[in-house]
């Protein structure tokens, strides 16, 4: 169980986190999302006890991270961004070292190292130097060290950072497996990954929580208007005008564009959020004597939720610039935070 209550943290005069609260029960993967400077990393560092909050409190498995710091840290596993490790150590040596830091006895240590290595599929590199491993394996070593002592709460900062698509899928599988029994908090800039892995998403913008809920809830609540694509056979003298007129008759629908290209008219329209207007569009086109070969609705995504939240944030422009246009998955990438 992870409980974050009204935590705030400033660096000098700059308020990085301003009163963030959320809770995460066991058996749940929570995604912490936000653009550059949203305060995600600062929040994570306060959760892990690396930084104390200026205000508010964080409880890990019921223990306050400031007043009961040692107990809280024993119950927490942490994979920092880019998995910092000792390059000169072997994988087994490093895992054994981490197990010793958690004061596991010899038998516990041996079984913990084997179990975490097996869980993270490190068997074939166990005796290799960490510095000689690929980025994917190093990330796995970091994850293995985070889950080694069987913590109740696991915090993973950008766990898929720098991994190739195959490794991303493997990491996703590991996170889902961990999330069945543990409280897992991940910070990720890959929105599609968060959508697939997380049962709950906390969106931070400018140091505050702007949205909190399941991906489906957030998409339903703030997914923005539904976008429609229509392709109709161009048969009249003004085919684009005819399509436009047919679409305008659908209640709540706004025509964005309608353009005739060769034998077809391509139109785009937007409708109210949470409603499916495809049937009404098809009926209106048929009533107007138009033949449609496509009426489709774009599925709202978490990316849409983000864009909507960023645009609706005062001074959202600079925050929105934290978005990476050439992001990992079709421009849906958000940069790492401060």
């Amino acid at each position: 169980m992870l409980s974050v209550q009204d935590v705030a943290r400033s660096y000098g005069r700059v308020a990085a986190v301003r009163g963030v609260s959320f809770e995460a029960p066991p058996g749940c993967v929570v995604g912490l999302l936000g653009p550059n400077g949203a305060g995600k990393s600062t929040t994570i560092r306060m959760i892990t006890g690396f930084l104390p909050p200026d205000r508010g409190r964080v409880r890990v498995a019921g223990f306050d991270t400031v007043e009961q710091s040692a107990q809280a840290r024993r119950r927490l596993g942490y994979l920092p961004e880019s998995a910092p490790l000792y390059a000169e150590m072997s994988v087994r040596g490093y895992l054994d070292y981490r197990a010793r830091l958690y004061e596991l006895d010899r038998r516990e240590r041996r079984s913990a190292v084997s179990a975490s290595a097996e869980r993270c599929r490190l068997g074939e590199v166990l005796h290799r130097r960490i510095g000689h491993l690929s980025k994917g394996y190093r990330q796995r070593v970091g994850l293995a060290s985070a889950v080694l002592h069987d913590p109740e709460v696991i915090v993973l900062d950008e766990p898929s950072n720098g991994l190739d698509p195959t490794q991303v899928v493997e990491m996703r599988g590991l996170i889902v497996e961990l999330g069945k029994t543990k409280t897992v908090l991940i910070s990720s800039h890959i929105l599609a990954e968060v959508e697939r892995v997380c049962g709950r998403v906390v969106v931070m913008i400018r140091g505050e929580v702007r949205a909190d809920g399941s991906p489906a809830d957030l998409i339903g609540r703030t997914g923005g208007p539904g976008a429609y694509t229509v392709e109709v056979r161009a048969e009249s003298e003004d085919p684009a005008g005819a399509v436009r007129a047919a679409l305008v008759r659908v209640p709540g629908l706004t025509v964005v564009s309608a353009e005739a290209r060769g034998a077809w008219v391509y139109a785009r329209a937007s409708g109210p959020s949470g409603e499916d207007a495809r049937e009404a569009i098809a009926r209106s086109l048929r009533t107007s004597g138009l033949l449609a070969r496509e009426v489709s609705r774009e599925r709202p995504t978490l990316e849409g939720v983000f864009m909507h939240l960023l645009e609706s944030t005062p001074e959202g422009g600079p925050a929105a610039r934290g978005l990476s246009g050439g992001g990992a998955l079709g421009g849906g990438a958000l940069g790492g935070g401060a």
């Binding site: 690396f50 942490y78 920092p80 910092p84 000792y86 830091l101 958690y102 004061e103």
Partner: peptide
């Protein structure tokens, strides 16, 4: 190297 972060968040 940033290894101070996992070290300072361990029970040490």
């Amino acid at each position: 190297s940033g290894t101070i972060e996992p070290l300072m968040t361990s029970p040490a």
